[in-house]
């Protein structure tokens, strides 16, 4: 029984901010913005998590990592809930998370560049009006080139820097 020793919600958020993303361990689950809610329902701690991509293989691992982190802190009654709506967006990545990504060599998502399936991006590129500039996370050059829409994980695309010649991952906007 946790009763009077029940840790407050802010404390739980702090603990979760120390749980790394299993695919990109430089950022935490709270940096990623996938923890949607933490609340006590009576003596049960309820953590609401939203998946990034429907088929992201890390989802199961993330749930296990959350369980383990909280059990290790002495939480006995715990329930994880999945929330699909509103769907996760890279807009929820924290500023700190974006900087950590960049320092790790992954270009962070640029707001407003998500695909919309209507080839607007392509049309804009053809017309020379694209504002989609993905800066190289290593040298900062904006002379970069997309190699593939999909990268080493579902959330990333592959890019190449035309100045320093390094290949790098870009965390796609979604």
């Amino acid at each position: 029984m946790q009763g009077a020793t029940q840790p407050d919600v802010a404390e739980v958020w702090r603990w979760l901010s120390e749980v790394p993303d299993p695919e990109i361990p430089v950022i935490s689950l709270t940096d990623l913005g996938i923890i949607r809610d933490v609340e006590w329902q009576g003596d049960t701690l309820v953590v609401t998590v939203t998946p990034t991509y429907s088929g992201c293989p890390a989802t199961t691992i993330i749930n296990l990592d959350i369980e383990k982190a909280l059990r290790d802190r002495g939480i006995e009654k715990l329930r994880l809930e999945r929330r699909l709506s509103p769907p996760w967006t890279t807009d929820w990545l924290t500023e700190e998370g974006r900087e950590k990504l960049r320092a790790y060599g992954i270009a962070p998502p640029v707001d407003g560049t998500a695909a919309d399936g209507r080839l607007i991006g392509r049309a804009a590129r053809l017309a020379g009006t694209s504002n989609l500039v993905i800066a190289c996370p290593r040298c900062g050059s904006t002379q970069t080139q997309k190699v593939s829409q999909f990268g080493s994980t579902p959330c990333k695309a592959s890019y190449r820097c035309k100045d320093c010649l390094e290949p790098f991952d870009y965390f796609k906007c979604i």
Binding site: D116, G117, G121, Q149
Partner: peptide, 8 residues
């Protein structure tokens, strides 16, 4: 959101 990337 995922299908948009597929189509693109």
């Amino acid at each position: 959101k995922e299908a948009a990337y597929h189509l693109e």
